[in-house]
């Protein structure tokens, strides 16, 4: 079985972004970029399945400008066998990305596609579900455990009320939650090896999909700032303030 993993290049999760001064976007040009943390977990899960001999090949794909090759190489250093860049300089929406990924799924016919549940820049949480719809495959979103069998995969999902387990027929689409695994670090020899692994480039335009934006960002503003608070000296003072000043407890 092949596993396809979709990864996104995003601003590193430690960076606190700010809106640009013209209020039209966010100031990220010089910010550190990384693999989206949920996608890193997706890569790790695929590599573990390969190590457990449940998969023969792990392919990573990213849709974006040439800069995404950096993250594709990182994913190969973590154990992916080869990479595909779907090349475009445009910022695509999840629907268009899902269409591009569906075209790659059509070509590669993977038994599992693993995505992150959410990209930490757009916070959309959409692409995996849309890819599942477009390929008419079952979806196991927000996965915290996977058990792969011959014809199906059991997915434990982190849902609001607790955990839910589904059985999905293969091929299937999975999106990862943080507890699925803890990604490894790439070793130096593996980073060197990754430089020689194959990285194919497919032009988005060759896939014949409609990538026109359907939703436009017209303004970006900073969230309401909280007023600076005070430090209290004791628990007694805290309780007094909550009762008599903030009036939030009786």
């Amino acid at each position: 079985m092949k596993i396809l993993v979709a990864i996104k290049r995003v601003v590193d999760y430690n960076v606190k972004v700010r809106p640009t001064s013209d209020g039209k976007g966010v100031d990220i040009a010089n910010a550190k970029k990384s693999i989206n943390p949920f996608c890193e977990i997706a890569v790790e899960e695929a590599v573990r399945l390969k190590e457990a001999k449940q998969a023969d090949e792990v392919i990573v794909v990213s849709v974006g400008a040439d800069a995404v090759q950096e993250q594709l190489r990182t994913a190969m250093a973590l154990g992916a066998d080869r990479a595909i860049q779907v090349k475009t300089d445009a910022e695509l929406e999840p629907l268009a990305i899902a269409k591009a990924l569906a075209a790659i799924v059509e070509q590669e016919q993977p038994g599992l596609v693993i995505l992150g549940k959410q990209s930490i820049d757009g916070d959309n949480n959409q692409t995996g579900q849309m890819l599942a719809a477009l390929t008419n495959r079952p979806q196991g979103t927000f996965a915290s455990e996977l058990v792969v069998n011959d014809n199906d995969v059991q997915v434990t999902r982190e849902v609001d009320g607790g955990l839910q387990t589904l059985s999905l027929s293969l091929p299937a689409i999975i999106t990862t939650d943080l507890r699925l695994n803890e990604p490894r670090y790439a070793s130096l020899p593996n980073i060197m090896k990754a430089k020689r692994k194959p990285l194919a480039v497919t032009e988005l335009s060759e896939l014949g999909i409609d990538a026109e934006p359907k939703v436009v960002i017209t303004a970006v503003e900073a969230p309401a700032q909280r007023k600076a608070g005070i430090k209290v000296e004791s628990v007694a003072e805290l309780v007094d303030k909550l009762k008599n000043e903030a009036k939030v407890i009786a």
Binding site: V11, K16, V17, R18, P19, V26, I120, D121, G122, D123, K214, V215, V216, I217, T218, A219, V220, E221, A222, P223
Partner: peptide, 15 residues
């Protein structure tokens, strides 16, 4: 909200 709520985007769509 986008970027973990560090920015609030106004979005519009003619779909």
């Amino acid at each position: 909200p986008i970027y973990a709520g560090n920015a609030i985007a106004t979005v519009t769509s003619q779909q």
